[in-house]
Design a protein around this nucleic acid. Structure first.
Lengths: 149, 149
DNA sequence: AATAATTTAATTGTGCACAATTAAAACTTA
DNA sequence: TAAGTTTTAATTGTGCACAATTAAATTATT
């Protein structure tokens, strides 16, 4: 009797069957879908996420940015330095707690907000999802995130 | 009348409301959830994905790996070189088409399969999802992927 | 067959992402 | 207050991820 490949016995080991791979691949596809929209602003997707937070809060510490984005200073420090060079934001030590660094939106960063206003809608169109579908999916993903962290 | 922040007018610009951020953040959380399970095999998550394919197909070209993983040679070539150094796989030009590089599972790579057999189940436990929930979610994500590519 | 166009990997350069370490500041506690 | 602990960023080093370019091999077209 001929032996089947292990993957025939273990369909769970097949790439196609893995939810995790779908999340990983979709995440990269989404970043690529953003890219042409972000290109005219000259920002990357992670930089855009920082801007979303600063547009909302104006000033945050590196720690607060990291808590929101689930990123540490090893990622954020060089990213924020690049954004500072573009004068989209400023970085300075908090006088009340010299351990912290305050990241504040600069005028050039504020100016990008109007240009970015249409981006979420354009992405939603690309994904062809209705608002309730988006909300439902987001809730499911958030729940998994809670369980994993 | 006091002006509200733009994010109050534009809730769609709020990070918390964005499905795309959830996918991005979940993808990184998943990679971190795999990490302790992959550590004893000394493989990274992308390397594990390559192994999944080679366990199933034994030999694939760089192009075929890229089609399955949605990665190009710029990512795969150095990654495969590192895996070759561990002797998990071999790389050689295809004699019938010298443009292609054949990537074949090596004995040390095959040996990792048994050690990895429990990993998908352990992940599923961490995520606390039932098989139908996983299948449903995967289908939804695949559909978005189709629309984005 | 000669030329042109396409395909396939590799290379180069930039920017995350993250583990581990370091250093300074702030806080806790003896 | 002095010593020890914790918190916060920065730094260092490794490994993706990807755009753009290069080079070789193949295929298509004249």
């Amino acid at each position: 009797m001929k032996k089947l490949p292990d993957s025939a016995y273990n369909p769970i080991l097949k790439l196609d069957n893995q939810l995790c791979f779908s999340v990983y691949a979709l995440s990269r596809l989404i970043t690529k879908a953003y890219q042409p929209l972000l290109e005219s602003l000259d920002v990357t997707y992670p930089q855009y996420l920082v801007l979303l937070l600063l547009w909302e809060h104006k000033e945050l510490t590196v720690k607060q940015l990291g808590e929101n984005l689930l990123l540490d200073s090893g990622t954020l420090t060089p990213l924020l330095k690049r954004m500072e060079q573009h004068q989209w934001l400023s970085r300075r030590r908090d006088a009340r707690d010299e351990r912290s660094v305050l990241v504040a939106l600069a005028p050039a960063g504020r100016a990008l907000q109007a240009q970015a206003a249409q981006i979420p809608m354009q992405l939603a169109e690309k994904m062809q999802l209705t608002e309730p579908e988006i909300a439902g999916l987001r809730t499911q993903l958030r729940q998994i995130m809670t369980l994993l962290s």
